[in-house]
């Protein structure tokens, strides 16, 4: 794997089942550890990816499991690591956090963790495929 300026892509597809979140975490641990991130930064990335996969699996399961995979697409660049967690579950009408939800609601805590641990976080729907994409970036600060 040559880390050139254009970035190197590493893709992993996991079944949208809780048992496989640990597989995604292990993979991202391997990728982030190849970059000069600190131990704490690698742990931050691992936790954020775990949360993102958990969220994607919940979306797929809420959509009756018709789209049974979650894709994790990592782009390794010289000064940053981008990770996209992609699922094909259709967008739901309901907001992700119900107004009456406790501030310590589990789903909200996952979102809070991702936003704090990563430098850039963005959610979007791919206009071509309709897939839900959670894009996260961690920058190398040194």
């Amino acid at each position: 794997m040559a880390d050139d300026a254009a970035g190197v892509r590493v893709e992993l597809t996991i079944p949208a089942q809780p048992a496989y979140v640990s597989v995604a975490r292990l993979a991202i641990l391997g990728i982030a550890s190849r970059m000069p991130f600190t131990y704490d930064e690698v742990e931050d990335i691992r936790l954020a990816v775990g949360e993102a996969c958990t969220h994607a699996i919940a979306r797929v399961q809420a959509a009756d499991g018709a789209h049974p995979n979650v894709r994790i697409v990592c782009t390794v660049e010289p000064r940053r690591l981008q990770i996209e967690v992609i699922d094909d579950a259709p967008a739901t009408e309901a907001p992700e956090a119900a107004p009456e939800a406790s501030p310590f609601d589990e789903a909200q805590l996952g979102g809070v963790l991702i936003r704090i641990l990563m430098d850039e976080v963005e959610q979007r729907t791919d206009p071509e495929t309709g897939a839900h994409v959670l894009r996260m970036v961690k920058h190398l600060l040194r």
């Binding site: 975490r25 936790l47 775990g50 949360e51 958990t54 609601d105 589990e106 805590l109 996952g110 963790l113």
Partner: peptide, 8 residues
């Protein structure tokens, strides 16, 4: 390792 599900 502990995530938001565990916190919940």
């Amino acid at each position: 390792y502990l995530d938001s599900t565990a916190l919940g």
